[in-house]
Design a protein around this nucleic acid. Structure first.
Lengths: 232, 232
DNA sequence: CGTGCACTTGAGGCACGTCAACGTTCGTGG
DNA sequence: CCACGAACGTTGACGTGCCTCAAGTGCACG
């Protein structure tokens, strides 16, 4: 009980809407876990034994070909749900990008609990449907957009998503300035590009005065309209 | 009642597990609809007013950029679910590829019914989670595989999926010979390629004796092992 | 027997990948 | 505090896989 009481995502995660006694029961089968940047939580192909809620931080979902080409297939933020309930093997790895705190459940326990609590399943369904929408939108970007459009779209999406989840403190409207939770290599893996191409496109946007790059990880959106035009 | 009784997907679609009286209630709010090849059911960006079950046929989910580049973000088969319950606008169009029969519901009616029937929501959740897995797997293909690998993977997937759904009558093991429900242009839209590249890759596979192309729409997998090797 | 559409084939160009060198930041220990 | 090395990022030269544009070819229709 104590843990959920003070949980910052209490009203946004799938736990929202549960009564106090239900929440206590859920808390009983879960435990907190802290992750360091780069620390894996789930490995691609492993049997699905773990599900979790993100409390704090950013994590990547990634999938690789046998010969080592990697693609980041999703990025999760606080209040997002991780893992594959009700079935077999994990289709992708889950790795922390920043320091992160998650609320972990054994899948078997979670499955049972979910089956007995339709409200929780409903929340999970809404979340999964939303994630599917976002994933499909990203497919269009991966296959049909140019490198320039990809990078511009990525920067805009980051400025929105980091805001929503309050990673960067209170600000009004989309963020103008923020720190990327990604290395250049990881940006490349999100966009289906190489590190060199990402670097070149970022430099080009900077040269044209559309963005600023004060430090390695930070981005400033100088001309949002221009960026939106490029994103297409 | 009558309609569901004889429904071929009765035990595979999300309706599976409903008691007879529940099914009758669901049947009351739905209606059958037939679609011709190329006929649209839902338009991208429209408000989400319609959801449906596929009874027969194959449909595509597609999304486009403003300047007309299209990407097929999903393909649905009999017993699959179509549409976006519980929320706003449709993220993609839905169009019949073959003659199709679907079971359509007004979204408001369906949302209400679902909220009152946890078993149905559970089925829908399992289906959505599965679809999300498949979609993420496809992202890796779109961004990191070569044209050759894409076409090989596509042909293998088709031979599996057409079998599962019984579109092609009873056969044992994956299909050796089947008719594509796609034109070359549509294959290109699934794989994020151009029509010319798809054509060249198909011809190359034929030249190497790995597949046969008896007619425009039909494919014969001659050397499945070789095809799997290429698919990567 | 034309007419039209889907598909194939070819020639050429370009966006992005590859390979390689260089610059910058950051941690570590002398 | 600075010296050093490793990791990360940038920049350049070059190659190539796929796209673009354009001209066939074959099949289905009246």
């Amino acid at each position: 009980m104590a843990a959920c009481d003070t949980c910052v995502v209490r009203n946004r995660a799938i736990c929202a809407g549960l009564a106090n006694d239900e929440l206590a029961a859920l808390n009983n089968i879960g435990r907190r876990r802290n992750l360091e940047p780069g620390e894996p939580l789930i490995w691609e192909g492993d049997e699905s034994v773990l599900v979790a809620n993100v409390i704090e931080g950013v994590l990547k979902l990634s999938s690789s070909t046998e010969d080592g080409r990697e693609q980041i297939v999703g990025v999760v933020y606080p209040s997002d749900f991780i893992g594959r309930p009700f079935a077999g093997a994990a289709g992708h790895s889950v790795t922390a990008l920043t320091e992160a705190r998650v609320c972990v459940f054994a899948r078997a326990d979670f499955d049972r609990f979910a089956s007995e609590h339709p409200k929780l399943e409903h929340k999970l369904l809404e979340r999964t449907l939303g994630e599917l929408d976002r994933t499909r939108k990203w497919m269009l970007l991966l296959s049909r957009k140019t490198a320039q459009e990809k990078v511009a779209t990525f920067l805009l999406e980051m400025s929105d998503r980091l805001l929503e989840t309050g990673c960067e403190g209170p600000t009004l409207g989309p963020l103008r300035k923020f720190d990327l939770p990604f290395s250049r290599q990881q940006v490349a893996d999100v966009l289906g590009l190489t590190i060199e191409t990402v670097s070149r496109q970022m430099t080009a946007l900077k040269r044209d005065g559309i963005i600023g790059l004060p430090t390695r990880r930070s981005v400033e959106i100088v001309d949002r309209t221009a960026l939106e035009d490029i994103a297409g």
